Computed example of a mutant assay.
Amino acid sequence: MPVQTYNNKVFYGLCVTVLLLRIEWGISTSMLPLYIHELGGSPLEVGLVFSVFAGISIFSNIFWGALSDHFGKRKVFIVFGMAAIFPIFLLMAFQQEKLNLILLRGSTALFKGAVVPTAWALVADLSPPEKVGTNLGILSSIETAGFALGPIMGGLVADVFGFPSLWLFVASICLVGATVFFVIGSDPPNIQNRSRQRFVEAFKLSQFSVIGVLCIASAISLLGYSLLGPNLNVYLFDDIGFSRTTIGVLSFIGMGVTTLLQPLIGSYSDKYGRKTFLILGAINLIFGNIMLFFSRNLLLVLVARILMSNFGFFRSVGSAYITDVVPQTEKSMALGFFNSVDSISRSIGAMVGGYVISMMGMPTLIMISPAFPAIGIAIVFFLLKESKIQNES
């Protein structure tokens, strides 16, 4: 599938930077919960790995997204965000206190908010209207590839060299990502800005009611995954008996399948509309949760991870939906808001999930989790209006 943007060089440079960010993210998300667990952390403390990070992301995504729209700049925020994460992981390499590790990891969200919504908005800026879904699908595929590579790389480094060396490795990844986009990246000339308005005006969304329905559906659906949160890997490690490397390989294969499918899903959503593929993402999560409940061997867990990873369709198609309905001067802010709602769901889900696991156990939580994406499907089907997509036909 050939890439079609107004500046392919910038697009490819952005993809490399985003890939490196998501490798870091995949390592942190999969390995830090195991590290906290091995340091004697409870399920609630393991859940805090997600909750603190996601809680800070709620505000940082919106703030940096609005700031990017206000000044009409993308590159400076992406480079700054990647570079600022570097020293945090250097500090983590010399820490063994559970709370300090959780807080340091959480603080990276202060700066990731400068990268994520801005990167998605930049792809929309670079894309012809009829290719927005396709190109956002490619970006989402790159992100998923990073998430897939992260756990297996993290598991191998942690098993061979230990966790302190792993955090030094992650720090170097972030520095390389900042350098790549500093050299290759640029802002497209067609970006408008709102610098003549007061900064507070950048936080206003003209299509808030439409975006709000999508965000509610996304947040509720995501609870089907976020309730399991970081305790899922602990469950696979303790209850099923998989090694750290095996857990990483499972994530790699599951997300690898999603990586291959997302550009195709994005392309189809450009042609046939967004709602069908939003629903498809939630259906995958339902069946993934059901499969996980009955999984006691490697093959069944692998199928469950593939299906659960395919919920990523919801995020990429949802982001394309947002770029369909908001003006250019609000894209980064709107995408930041979408990501912040995602963070709220992850934060609440991880805390509640940790409590439920402590009281009733992981199998009970897995059993009830499919109800949430089912509710999300109902919201999309009955309440969300189809966006108007400009296509080649």
Rank of each mutant, 00 (worst) to 15 (best):
Q328G: 03
L103E: 04
L175Y: 10
G106H: 10
I348Y: 13
P33H: 05
L384Y: 10
F203W: 08
V180Y: 09
R296F: 11
I290N: 07
L278I: 03
S345K: 05
L101I: 08
K385V: 02
I348L: 15
G349A: 13
I290W: 09
I286F: 07
I173P: 12
G185D: 10
K271L: 10
Y321M: 02
A114V: 00
N135E: 02
G349L: 03
W64G: 14
L280C: 06
I211A: 12
K112P: 00
F50E: 07
S107Y: 01
I247D: 12
G26E: 08
K73L: 02
K385W: 03
G55M: 02
P128L: 00
G154L: 02
I62G: 08
L214W: 02
T29M: 12
M351H: 06
N297I: 01
I290G: 09
M360Y: 15
R74G: 11
F293W: 13
G55L: 03
S332F: 03
V132H: 01
P43C: 07
V52T: 11
G41N: 08
V326E: 09
L307K: 07
S165R: 15
S172K: 03
L250I: 14
L307I: 01
Y321A: 09
I36C: 11
I348Q: 07
F314Q: 09
A202L: 00
E201F: 08
F199R: 10
I344A: 15
R74A: 13
S369K: 05
V257S: 09
V3M: 07
V317I: 07
I344M: 11
P33D: 02
G288Y: 02
I78W: 05
I377Q: 04
I152T: 13
G113T: 04
K9E: 11
E143W: 04
F111I: 07
S42Q: 00
S269W: 05
G266F: 05
S165T: 06
S30M: 04
T179Y: 06
V115K: 13
A334V: 00
A148N: 08
V301S: 06
N193K: 13
N100I: 12
G137R: 06
G248T: 01
G47I: 01
F161D: 03
M333A: 15
T108F: 01
A282C: 05
Q95C: 12
P230A: 11
R196L: 00
F311W: 06
L101V: 10
I366Y: 06
G376W: 02
